[in-house]
Design a binder for these strands. Structure first.
Lengths: 396, 396
DNA sequence: GATATACCTGACAACGTTGTCTTGCCTGGC
DNA sequence: GCCAGGCAAGACAACGTTGTCAGGTATATC
């Protein structure tokens, strides 16, 4: 840690790094001291972001002159004393080039540090960009990052890279991102729709751009769609509760504006109806957007007359909130939750999960997309992935 | 669910979707029946992936003819009766174009569904691609997806898109990905190094490609680097344990081949040395790559003579394994773990965490990169982000 | 009325690569 | 000795866009 001259200071934009914002957010800090003044090691500046600038190991000056131009095939051709076409042939491993020319070209390539310009290569008519676009709600969400990982994996087998963009559930932003990706001439698009209507993509689709919708269907544009068996899963989950003798089952959901929520509610209600349990509006709670609001809602429901004996959660954020509140209260109401998540089996209260293979979900969409990219022009399809009930009861 | 003709069947590549592989992996299935035969709702084919193909709502034939060519500025110019230069001006909102020509061009653009080709635009000398590359270990890992989210967010404010690629910790693959990204002429690169030496990028860097290394330094190429205060964090964590009176502290780590592991071990050992606790090789366990092996290691350590009374975990996978094993055994050994993670506060045994702001980590790297892209040619810097001890004791 | 100025428009080249076509050479068969 | 055919290499155009420059018209200035 003592190489070269050093110059300590605080990075220009590090204001937001000081103090708060530790992962896990806002908890108390060691020894009750304020974050900024705490020492967390031998480093005198610990607690704040530290930036060192300067040469390391050997003499070196910051660059100031104009940057050297990137070498092109013309430069390589001149250096090797051949035509650019020959350079192109060598670079692309085309046949019918004499060995000594190949060597001269490869030497020139190495000496100049030539790297083929993929942009220009793509421009020549008909070439693909070997890039696909994935538009999701938010890449930081583990569900979507698993999807992205699966899509990237499939893309890799097709020598294709992945541009991922987050719509943040905003239809305008989604449209902007999608059209931007079209301008970049991606070879295909996978979209988790935020908007209802993707008619603005029709022109692109007609000109051969493959599009796959994932997790939610889209109105306005008929294209391949990969969905989850939301109804079936919810149905099975609620039936599981009914089978345990529960009749008062509370259903918590995020927003009726989201397709998956509507489907899951429908499935849950069908299970209730099948069992002859009368509809009770008081047992259905909408607009539960995060764990805290889920916890609050649980409190309200349990405080009411004739409280529920079981809960059905329609997504994992709600599930977490319900668990926290039940745990706090020592309440032994039973819970079934849609979406499995990492470490769910280590939660303080075991609960039954409606799970599915998220990686397979993304993989299906990606394989479908590449089938289209590879020329499949048959009817658009709708694929429905199954869900699985993973029962975990209370030990007792 | 009853639109148009339907055709049920199993998707060609859905083998891996049947049965196993539910998220959370390999747990028993409802009612003890095999996955394939279980019913999870009203759907007769539940348990297997179902694909429907066919028109929805209205008559439509699968496309077979040649795809219509994408309209170019030439097409728009012809239709509007102007030169392509005028089209270019209109499309780019350049001044000095008469209103009636603007209207004619915009009409032609709308009628033809023209969308500017960003590839060709980029090719014209000197233009940037408005794309940056991020090479990480694996996008499915929540740590990296948080990084990606932060980078994408910063990129968005610079009207730039993000290509994310996973090196899978393989130096060869990393090199291939990085060079591919160079061919695509990304405006900059953020790399979590898998390899030790990134000298192969020197030519690109000299020709003006900004590179930022994140989470691990790189030998062989002097560039901006953003690191975590691994030593300080580990030092503080172990000191915390020592402060509670522990003298036999086991340290579990993944691999000494990884920079962060070496740093964390060093910090932990410094704390021990500072407290006059003699070095004991038996207390340090290497090659703990996953939760299961962490759990096994805990079992071995506790079974030995003179077992540890506290554990120091150097990453969150190891932490999870330790928690599971301690919980299983009802052992009340104390644990401090590097890396906070979602729901860590809901784990069955409260434990102290060495946390940091992962989003800020990615943000710092991205801001640094864009400062370079915007022309900052000063000395490369090394930024060290602080860690924070988040003590959570056993309730008793 | 001549000249300067601003404004508007288009012709043309260039970006870096690859597809097409041509040219020249060499070998082999008659 | 002539021609067919394969091989090797290069000239040239094209991909779709934008920068440069020239030309043309209308308005303002002397």
């Amino acid at each position: 840690m003592a190489e070269g001259t050093t110059e300590a200071g605080t990075a220009a934009d590090s204001r937001s790094a000081k103090g708060g914002r530790a992962a896990g957010g806002g908890r108390a800090v060691a020894d009750g001291q304020p974050a900024g003044s705490r020492s967390s090691g031998g480093d005198p500046a610990a607690g704040a972001t530290v930036t060192r600038a300067g040469p390391i190991g050997h003499r070196m000056a910051p660059r100031t002159g104009p940057l050297p131009r990137r070498p092109t095939m013309v430069d390589v051709a001149q250096r090797a004393g051949v035509s650019i076409k020959t350079v192109s042939r060598v670079v692309n491993n085309a046949p019918h080039v004499q060995q000594d020319l190949v060597d001269r070209v490869l030497n020139a390539v190495a000496e100049l540090g030539f790297r083929r310009n993929g942009i220009a290569r793509t421009l020549r008519a008909g070439r693909t960009t070997s890039t696909i676009g994935l538009v999701i709600e938010e890449i930081g969400n583990p569900f979507y990052s698993t999807i992205a990982a699966a899509v990237a994996e499939v893309a890799g087998t097709h020598e294709t890279m992945l541009i991922t963009a987050s719509s943040e559930e905003d239809p305008d932003r989604e449209q902007q991102l999608l059209l931007d990706l079209c301008s970049r001439r991606v070879d295909g698009l996978i979209v988790v729709p935020a908007a209802f209507d993707h008619g603005f993509l029709r022109g692109e689709v007609e000109m051969g751009l493959p599009v796959v919708f994932l997790d939610r269907p889209s109105g306005g544009l008929h294209a391949d769609t990969v969905l989850l068996d939301n109804r079936g899963g919810a149905h099975a989950g609620v039936r599981h509760l009914i089978g345990q003798g529960h009749r008062r089952i509370a259903i918590l959901l995020d927003s009726m504006g989201v397709y998956t929520m509507r489907e899951r509610l429908t499935g849950a209600q069908e299970a209730m109806t099948d069992a002859g349990i009368p509809y009770d509006a008081a047992m259905i709670r909408d607009q539960v957007h995060d764990p805290d609001s889920a916890a609050r809602t649980v409190g309200e429901l349990l405080a009411a007359a004739d409280p529920p004996t079981a809960f059905f959660s329609t997504n994992n954020r709600i599930t977490v909130g319900i668990i926290e509140e039940l745990w706090r209260r020592g309440d032994d109401s039973v819970l079934v939750g849609f979406d499995d998540f990492e470490l769910s089996h280590l939660m303080p209260r075991p609960f039954t999960v409606i799970g599915y293979d998220t990686r397979e979900y993304g993989r299906q969409a990606a394989q479908l997309l590449f089938r289209r990219i590879d020329g499949d022009r048959s009817w658009p399809t709708t694929t429905v992935l199954p869900t699985h009930l993973l029962p975990r009861g209370l030990p007792g």
